[in-house]
Computed example of a mutant assay.
Amino acid sequence: MISFQLTADLEASAKLTFENMAPYYAHYGVDWECSKIHEQIVSLENWDVLYNGEVVGAIRLAYDGDDCWLRDLQVSGEYQNKGIGAAALSEVERLAHNKGSRRMWLRVFKISPARNLYLRSGFVMDREEERFHYMCKEL
């Protein structure tokens, strides 16, 4: 069963993100540390993604007027391709709608397979940079 709860342990959540993102940091030559992730997520709305009661992922949101920014959606590698990411994205949409957001935005590495999940979920390409696609979805 997939469920969600507000994050109580930001350090563990930052570590999950650091480990999940390590291949992307290595690919792009980004020098990143777990402590930097922790610093950045403190000001966000943080949610744990649970599978059968175990934390297997993270959702991080920021709100700006009518917009909700999906700053992070992580699912641990061994739990990917089980529908957890799609369920988490549906939860993000519900949370954004409840806050009165009219649009959802995100940034995803071009090499990330998560891009396909976002396209299937109704996100459209807004613009791109060297490493990233920026995507939007009207709610």
Rank of each mutant, 00 (worst) to 15 (best):
M1T: 13
I2F: 14
I2S: 06
I2D: 12
S3P: 06
S3G: 04
S3T: 15
L6K: 15
L6V: 07
T7D: 00
T7E: 08
D9M: 03
D9L: 04
L10N: 02
E11W: 13
E11F: 07
A12T: 05
A12E: 10
A14L: 03
K15G: 04
N20Y: 03
M21Q: 06
Y24A: 14
Y24S: 08
Y25R: 09
Y25T: 06
A26P: 03
G29S: 08
V30K: 11
D31C: 10
D31I: 15
W32A: 07
K36I: 03
H38P: 00
H38V: 01
E39I: 00
I41V: 12
I41F: 03
V42E: 14
E45G: 00
D48Y: 02
L50P: 05
Y51H: 14
G57C: 09
G57H: 08
I59N: 07
L61I: 03
L61K: 06
L61N: 07
A62Q: 11
Y63V: 04
Y63W: 12
D64F: 11
G65H: 08
G65D: 15
D66H: 09
D66K: 08
C68R: 03
C68S: 07
W69Y: 14
W69F: 14
D72P: 02
Q74D: 14
Q74P: 00
S76D: 13
G77F: 11
G77T: 15
E78A: 13
Y79A: 02
Y79W: 15
N81I: 11
N81C: 09
G83Y: 09
I84A: 11
A86F: 05
A86V: 05
L89P: 01
V92D: 03
V92I: 12
E93Q: 12
R94Y: 05
H97A: 15
N98V: 10
K99G: 04
K99D: 04
S101T: 07
R102L: 14
R103Q: 14
R103M: 09
R103Y: 13
W105E: 08
L106M: 09
L106F: 05
L106P: 01
R107F: 02
R107E: 14
I111C: 10
I111K: 15
S112V: 07
S112C: 02
N116Y: 13
N116D: 12
N116R: 06
N116Q: 11
L117M: 12
Y118L: 07
L119I: 15
R120Q: 15
S121G: 11
G122Q: 04
G122N: 07
F123Q: 00
F123W: 02
F123R: 03
V124A: 04
M125P: 02
M125Y: 03
M125H: 13
E128P: 00
E128I: 00
E130H: 05
R131A: 05
F132A: 01
F132E: 01
H133Y: 15
H133W: 10
Y134I: 09
M135T: 04
E138V: 10
